[in-house]
Design a protein around this nucleic acid. Structure first.
Length: 195
DNA sequence: TGGCCGATATGCT
DNA sequence: GCATATCGGCCAA
């Protein structure tokens, strides 16, 4: 008998985007029969790399909502998922990697031929692994997904965001230290953030 | 309306 | 480490 998990509420996402991104590390994200622990996130906040600037039409949702899912497409075939943040400032957190926990058989079937370490280690990978869809775009964060807080927050490292050309100096990537499911080599060379 | 580019993943050298 | 698949979003024209 495990005690009931504490679920995230709307107020969780209304805070500063960087705090939200940090505090999402360790949170269990469930969709249907599959779930995983979030081990990597990035904060976007109206900076030069954010879709609020680079995709002013579709990225507008970052400035007009809080606690909404923002699904975007990139490089033709890939999808990634964010949650929008802050009521009075543009913001969104990109979910970049999960440590898969339940429904592993389903997840492996969705990502055939991949070693377990690569099932959810990237934003487009976890999108497929959890069976997410474009239909989620604009929907409330808790309509189809369940977000539950961990008993203890894991040790967290920060570093520059991945795959961007602008605002590369901002250390707005957050990841669980030494977790093998973090993308791009994880946290080995990055500094830990204060607890 | 044409053309450029991207918050990526994967396979090959 | 590097090339490339593949197409929506965006803007210049």
């Amino acid at each position: 008998m495990t005690r009931p998990a504490r679920l995230l509420d709307a107020a969780f996402f209304s805070r500063d985007t960087r705090e939200v991104a940090r505090d999402l590390i360790g949170v269990t994200l469930r969709h249907g029969e599959t779930s995983g622990v979030i081990v990597e996130t990035e904060a976007y906040r109206g900076d030069a790399a954010s879709h609020f600037v680079t995709r002013p039409r579709t990225g507008r949702i970052m400035g007009t909502t809080c606690g909404a899912l923002y699904v975007y497409r990139i490089y033709g075939m890939h999808r990634c998922m964010n949650v929008t943040t802050e009521t009075d400032h543009p913001g969104a957190v990109l979910i970049r990697a999960l440590d898969p926990t339940t429904g592993l058989d389903i997840i492996r079937a969705r990502r055939p031929g991949r070693p377990d370490r690569e099932l959810c280690s990237g934003p487009a990978r976890l999108f497929v692994a959890l069976g997410l869809s474009d239909e989620l775009n604009g929907r409330p964060f808790d309509e189809s997904l369940t977000w539950s807080l961990p008993a203890r927050r894991p040790e967290i490292a920060t570093g520059p965001r991945i795959g961007i050309r602008h605002a590369t100096e901002l250390p707005w990537r957050f990841m669980a230290v030494d977790n093998p499911h973090v993308s791009h080599g994880g946290s080995r060379r990055l500094r830990a953030v204060a607890p």
